Computed example of a mutant assay.
Amino acid sequence: MKKFTIDLFVNNRFGVLNRITGLYCKRAYNIESIQAGPTEIPGCTKIEIVSTGDDYMRTQVISQLEKLYDVRKVELLSEMDGE
């Protein structure tokens, strides 16, 4: 299993974080940590999610996140080998 970090830039609207975490929940994927904060762009929030999973899980999560309506951008930041 690998630990990886995904950065999301999302529209700051009601229920966005719920839809993102719901996507993980439906697929029984684990979130190690999650952080959210403002950006320089008005109405845009940056969310950083650290997860653990294999290559298939990582690819699926990124693909599904990109399909969410209020998600502007998805970036894979880093990968580390887990224990």
Rank of each mutant, 00 (worst) to 15 (best):
K73S: 15
N30P: 08
D70R: 06
Y69K: 12
I41H: 09
C44E: 14
F14E: 08
R19I: 02
T52S: 11
E79A: 14
L76R: 08
E79F: 05
T21H: 02
K2R: 13
D70K: 13
F9K: 05
G82I: 12
Y29P: 01
N11W: 15
Q35C: 10
G53R: 03
R13V: 05
Y56R: 14
E75W: 11
T5K: 03
Q60A: 03
T59N: 03
N30G: 05
N30D: 07
E32P: 01
Y69M: 13
L68E: 11
F4T: 01
T59P: 00
Q35H: 07
E32R: 13
A36W: 02
K73G: 06
A28T: 12
C25V: 12
K2W: 04
S63Y: 13
T52L: 12
G82K: 15
L68N: 07
D81K: 12
F4P: 00
M80T: 14
R27I: 11
S63P: 05
K46G: 04
I62S: 05
N18L: 06
R13T: 08
D54H: 12
I20V: 07
T45W: 04
E48T: 06
G22K: 02
K67S: 01
T5V: 06
I62Y: 08
M80F: 12
E32D: 06
L17F: 03
I41R: 09
K2A: 06
N18Q: 10
R13F: 12
R58F: 09
I6M: 03
Y24F: 12
I49Q: 00
Q64T: 14
L65T: 11
I31F: 02
E66Y: 03
G22E: 05
M57S: 09
T21W: 01
I31D: 03
E32I: 10
Y29M: 10
G53A: 02
R27H: 09
T21F: 04
V71F: 07
Y24P: 03
V50Y: 00
Q60R: 07
K3N: 14
T59Q: 15
M80D: 09
I20D: 01
I62M: 15
R72C: 08
D55N: 06
V74N: 10
E48C: 13
P42L: 14
T45D: 07
G82V: 13
N12R: 04
F9I: 01
L77Y: 12
R58I: 09
P42V: 07
V74L: 07
L77M: 14
A28C: 08
S78M: 08
E32V: 15
V74E: 10
I49W: 00
K67T: 01
L76D: 04
K3W: 05
D81T: 15
T59H: 07
E75C: 14
Y29C: 08
V74D: 05
E66F: 05
I31R: 06
M1W: 05
N11F: 14
G15V: 02
V50L: 03
K67R: 06
T59W: 04
K26A: 08
S51M: 05
Q60P: 04
L76G: 04
N12V: 01
P38L: 12
I20R: 00
F9H: 09
Q35I: 01
A28D: 15
Y29A: 00
Q64C: 07
